[in-house]
């Protein structure tokens, strides 16, 4: 049988395993995308977030068969972009990264938000990040960083 073809961080790949396998496990184990973190395996924490055709998903809740033909982007790919640089700088200025485990997913959630809504209100930012649990920061620094990235990175989104 044919494998499942999709684009991972811009590169065409073919996965020969099961269509029922979790995208999270496949990204980590087969493609070494370890920025994708496993926090719960039930869609409740957002640490495994990935962009599929530009849309934010929890990769623990996606079966491989569902990404056939799609473009999957993880932090391994997103970190090469200008938008990442803007977010990275803003998160750094607000010291929004503590333990860091939620952060790749959080940053992708911010990217998904800003690409739909380049100038979100604070409430919209909190909504946009509401599926990504952070136990360290209390969220203020992260929310401020995203607001700042939107301001400073004007035109990128």
């Amino acid at each position: 049988m044919d494998g499942i073809r999709f684009t991972l961080n811009g590169t065409e790949v073919t996965y020969g395993g099961n269509a029922t396998d979790r995208l999270l496990d496949v990204l980590r184990d087969s493609y070494h995308c370890t920025s994708v973190k496993c926090g719960c395996k039930e869609g409740e924490c957002g640490a495994c977030a990935a962009l599929i055709d530009g849309v934010l998903y929890n990769s623990c809740c996606v079966a491989l068969g569902a990404v056939s033909g799609a473009s999957v982007v993880t932090m391994e790919g997103f970190r090469e972009t200008e938008r990442f640089t803007a977010l990275e700088k803003a998160f750094g200025e607000f010291s929004a990264v503590q333990c860091g485990f939620c952060i790749p997913g959080m940053t992708l959630a911010a990217e998904a938000l800003l690409s739909k809504n380049p100038h979100p209100t604070e409430e919209e930012i909190r909504e946009g990040l509401s599926g990504n649990l952070c136990r360290c920061t209390g969220y203020n620094a992260i929310v401020n960083a995203v607001a700042n990235a939107a301001r400073e990175g004007d035109g990128l989104w």
């Binding site: 994708v36 932090m75 970190r79 990442f84 977010l87 990275e88 998160f91 010291s95 990264v97 790749p104």
Partner: peptide, 11 residues
């Protein structure tokens, strides 16, 4: 900027 900021946010 925290010393572990860049490696953590970039994954």
């Amino acid at each position: 900027v925290k010393k572990d900021h860049a490696p953590k946010i970039s994954g």
